[in-house]
Design a protein around this nucleic acid. Structure first.
Lengths: 190, 190
DNA sequence: GGCTTTCTTGAGCGATCACTCAAGTATATA
DNA sequence: TATATACTTGAGTGATCGCTCAAGAAAGCC
């Protein structure tokens, strides 16, 4: 019957994700989004409902892509090598709008206010931690790491290290590559 | 000649620091500050000049206190034991308004906009990293860690781990004490 | 007490916030 | 081509943002 939208919804979500990732929730205004997505207010609200609803979509996209990339690496090179590669991958990507983790930034910004988006970011981080734990468990079953380690504990420490690494990678006075090397090297001692 | 202010400036700065620390820069409005500090707009601006100027004061206070506490621990128990205690200390304090590092939160929130406060937070983080490096150097000179390590590199990795730990400690699904133990245990292998 | 000087008060400034909605436009069906 | 059905547009909503300033209140010195 009627006309179709003139935009690519997935592409808009990706653009919005990059904006939110870089500037945060409060730091990104509707005006910013409208000009970046080339959408007038009416179209924006028809397409996404609200700023928060779009933010939630971008969080989902971000988290899904992250888990998918990690698991693809694990399929290609095995669990331990994927875990050793991950630190380098997350700080190396040049096209990324920010080095710091978008989930962590969201959680840090909004958790104190009890915002729904903080809970969602927290859930996505928990999913990511579970993925790390799965890989540690597989590495253990494959004999790549010793049998005495608790995969869940390893995953929590590893994720914490990655979060710190990614935050450090935003700084000019820090050599993030060295930190990534050290995190990866620690996995050889397990 | 005239009357004195009815407030304790240092106490107000500490209160403002706690608010900013918890809620962030954009997340803390003048109304929040006025009601928390019990100050009307006129008094607020007479005392501090602007929201950003007060924020800068709170950053300074936060950073000074952090370095002072670390160095006091080092004087009391030696450099290596201080570095091993620090992870537990930063996540253990119950009266703190947030576990995550205020400098890191500030930097993450404002760096992408080139805000002055992000630069200031970055400088304070660099100072903290230098303090860590000093302690690693002293520990090395005392023979507490091997002579083949670069204290600056150790400090960068250690600070990154601490930042990750403090961010993780905000989460309910993470056992931050275990991570702190693991970070401290790593120092014994140096 | 009289005077000076500062602190305190709170109404209100322009700008920006997220968001709405009615009018106009373009497209797919018939 | 005519009609129905969306999509597009942008002026405009009330609320809140950081901040100003003139008037009033209080404390130190004579």
């Amino acid at each position: 019957m009627p006309r179709k939208p003139s935009y690519d919804r997935d592409a808009l979500i990706a653009q919005a994700r990059d904006l939110f990732w870089q500037q945060g929730w409060a730091g990104t205004s509707l005006k910013d989004l409208e000009s970046a997505l080339n959408l007038k207010p009416g179209s924006f609200y028809a397409a996404f409902g609200s700023k928060d609803a779009l933010y939630a979509l971008t969080l989902e996209r971000y988290a899904q892509d992250g888990v998918a990339r990690l698991m693809a690496m694990a399929d290609e090179m095995g669990p331990l090598r994927a875990l050793k590669a991950q630190p380098h991958v997350v700080i190396d990507e040049r096209e990324m709008p920010a080095r710091a983790c978008m989930l962590a930034k969201t959680y840090a910004e909004l958790q104190s206010k009890g915002h729904d988006l903080a809970d969602k970011a927290g859930c996505h981080m928990a999913d990511m931690k579970a993925s790390f734990a799965t890989l540690f468990r597989r590495a253990q079953q494959a004999g790549e790491i010793g049998p005495d380690h608790d995969p869940d504990r390893l995953a929590a420490r590893y994720q914490s290290d990655i979060l710190g690494l990614r935050l450090s990678a935003e700084r000019r006075d820090v050599n993030a590559v060295e930190i990534a090397e050290d995190i990866a090297a620690d996995l050889d001692r397990l």
